[in-house]
């Protein structure tokens, strides 16, 4: 994990908790309250970013490959 990754996760954490939504909002998207959809979207982004980070070889894999 590089230095940027924790910052991305912190931003996703801040956006994933719906503290910033107006409390009286009654808009529905796909049958769900808008704040729920926003939480789901952020969670999907978080999963995608995690999977993206896991796509890259880990440090010890690289050093092993170099040794090999």
């Amino acid at each position: 994990m590089n230095l940027l990754s924790p910052i991305v996760f912190l931003i996703l954490l801040a956006l994933g908790i719906p503290w910033f939504w107006p409390s009286g909002n009654s808009v529905l998207i796909f049958g769900l309250p808008a704040w729920v959809v926003s939480a789901i979207v952020v969670s999907v982004l978080c999963s995608a970013f995690t999977a993206y980070l896991l796509r890259k070889p880990w440090a010890h894999e690289k050093s092993k490959a170099e040794d090999g």
């Binding site: 978080c46 999963s47 995608a48 995690t50 999977a51 896991l54 796509r55 070889p57 880990w58 010890h60 894999e61």
Partner: peptide, 14 residues
Amino acid sequence: SAIVLRKSLAMMAF
């Protein structure tokens, strides 16, 4: 291996 672990965790993320 590390590759197997990475792939499994990537699936688990979803």
